[in-house]
Design a protein around this nucleic acid. Sequence first.
DNA 1: CTCCCGATAT
DNA 2: ATATCAGGAG
Length: 216
Amino acid sequence: MLNRKQIRYCLDAMAEMFPDAKGELVHSNPFELVIAVLLSAQCTDKLVNKVTAGLFKKYKTPEDYLAVTLEELEQDIKSIGLYRTKAKNIKKLCQMLLDDYDGEVPQTKEELMKLAGVGRKTANVVASIAFNEPAIAVDTHVERISKRLGISRWKDSVIEVEETLMRKVPRDEWSVTHHRMIFFGRYHCKARNPNCPECPLLELCREGQKRMKKVL
DNA sequence: CTCCCGATAT
DNA sequence: ATATCAGGAG
């Protein structure tokens, strides 16, 4: 496992590689962000942006999503995977916003997680990006990077990964760290073909060491 | 744990 | 052909 100094070194290296790392889901208000993040489950954000470009022109408010049939909403998001579940959740979520939150998106992680289709990761993203609440959303990239580098153990759950990161990273760096880890995972330490030969963290990366030995 | 699921990269 | 993609619910 990496110590604090080593983790610090990793974060600084990622900051140098991706100084402008930030959320890439296009949105213009908290409501659109919730919809976009909900749609992004098991799907690239590039594809989400392609779909929401048209979606957000047609649907502006929770009432708009409730006004159409489930089938129509399904067709509007069909090119995204898991579209039936997501369409159902969007409708439920909109009804909940109107019933329980006066049509506004709640600002705390606890309230956000009560919404249909919104789990821990989505709640963290919305709280962090839309409401500037310090948070570390552990998605597939953050989990993979954290485990490969040795910040977390392979058997750790996503909640354990999140708790470890919150313990080892200063609170005022949670949000940037979260984004830098995602960029590092998305563009460099990719799931399929990680670029270990050109990685500044190769020396302290246990998974990288293992992979380089295989190649030789 | 399984299921949901189309688009894209490899 | 198949693994992977800003996961969540039952």
